[in-house]
Amino acid sequence: MFNLNSGRWWFHPILIVYSLFSVFPFLWILSASFQAKEVISSDQMSIIPGAITFQNYIDVFSKTPFPKWFLNSILVSTAATVIGLFIAATAAFGFSQFRFPGRKTGLYLFLCVQMFPGAVLLLPLFRLLSWFGLLDNYLGLVIAYCTISLPFCVWMLKGFFDTIPKAIIEAASIDGLTHFQTFYKIVLPLSLPGIAVTGFFSFITAWNEFMFANTFLFDSDKMTLAVGLKTFLSEKQSFWELLSPGSVIVTLPILLFFLVAQKWLISGLTSGAVKE
């Protein structure tokens, strides 16, 4: 490994140190999740557990509404992804295939909206949701998530649709397909990988979101994971023995998927969004 002749041997110490720095916080909480409550809350904890216990995992599933939060998060994120993808795909198809007045302005508007901080949208969304009686309601949260993920999805999908050769679309219209048929018979199947990448990122956005979920939901049974896990932290006491297994369960599936699919995700990200 340390090939001294190549002149690059000094890469290794730097990269090893930085890799450790990158991985360490997650490893630390992973290791804490397997250790007894008394050990975690003292300064006796070490990265390699002295005695492994699964009690924390049992506790977080049986004594807290964690399973409910998990289902809530899956429900809300999935709904936001599916609805958002459907709207974004149709919009992106329009922006990609047709030339119409206001097209450029529309695209730039989407770009500007993407820069909107969540805190800017919080207030108007709160008022709107309260008018429609959608506060403390999953549908309200899903709509809010769609508004934040839509611009990103439209730009990504437009990038993918642009790569479909014009000739195929023209052939379809010569064969007598309507615009909508072209969309779901030709464009959608051809850009399925792109849609999957976009969907994954939009799912992650909803999964990670905290501010909206913390504002628009009141009922503790309706909380999503980010808000729910926060309740284990308080000014006086922090329940690390519950927070650590919770965090691990939230992170592991996404982390594994990321690492397995990273090549594909990155190429999707760069070929879709950055190329334009």
């Binding site: 990269l15 090893i16 930085y18 890799s19 990158s22 991985v23 916080p25 997650f26 630390w28 909480i29 804490a32 992650i204 999964w207 990670n208 905290f210 994971l225 980010a226 896990l229 926060k230 932290l233 690390w240 927070l243 650590s244 965090s247 939230v250 992170t251 996404i254 982390l255 990321f258 690492l259 990273q262």
Partner: peptide, 22 residues
Amino acid sequence: YRLLIMVPWAVPSFVAAFSWRF
């Protein structure tokens, strides 16, 4: 190395906040 350095990207930001806070 590339995979290890990418880990913080995949960790949800609220989990990152919790583990650093820890």
